[in-house]
Design a protein around this nucleic acid. Sequence first.
DNA 1: TGCACTAAGTTCCAAATAAGAACTTATATG
DNA 2: CATATAAGTTCTTATTTGGAACTTAGTGCA
Lengths: 112, 112
Amino acid sequence: MKWTDLDDNWCPVARTLSLVGDRWTLLILRDCFLGLSRFDQFAESTGATRHIVSDRLKRLVEAGILEKLAYSDRPKRYEYKLTEKGQEFAPALIAFKDWGKKHLPVRRPTQA
Amino acid sequence: MKWTDLDDNWCPVARTLSLVGDRWTLLILRDCFLGLSRFDQFAESTGATRHIVSDRLKRLVEAGILEKLAYSDRPKRYEYKLTEKGQEFAPALIAFKDWGKKHLPVRRPTQA
DNA sequence: TGCACTAAGTTCCAAATAAGAACTTATATG
DNA sequence: CATATAAGTTCTTATTTGGAACTTAGTGCA
């Protein structure tokens, strides 16, 4: 079974996962909450390939979680912002953060 | 970059995702909270292939989120139960559930 | 005895997805 | 003109997944 087939599952958790149940998608959302909004920022911050960033942003916009806004007309440049629907995803990310802080302490510090 | 490389990321959300940031893993956890505990139950309930169920259960046990317990000795039969660490993941699933209920209503009822 | 059945996996191959790097497009800047 | 920037796209190769069949160890009839 493919994961997008979960979109009309009886379970609201499954339906949510069919949209955002993938690590890169959730990392991009985290970045949005941290104030990032541009393609290159997402690519660098998450470590996902540009291909993936492109695909995930497209899905998130289609789902109404992010909106794509032009911040420059010449040259055309876009940024991505959380919609209200997206903002309301905060509790889930906070729950992930709390769980990670408590149960997954960093062993090796990231190379500064 | 591979997602398991996120395990020592500075961000606790990323570290959490390196472990459970995948749709089937989260669906299996949902099932555990719903009281399911056996291999075949997970496979049927989530719709994931047995291959995936096997892999994800292994990871979850290694991570200390589930524990594998024998419920029968002859023949050897096992079940999977949430550890305390796993139990504490509840808030994240509840956040997913709430968001899904609010923002992703079911269109077509699942064939009863 | 032997045949079917169950639970918990494993194995196999084809198909889908992801990684990584290079390329494109439109414009601005020196 | 040459270089730089932002936001993607394209390409090839590698990894992961899907789906079905097979395995293992034991139980329960008939």
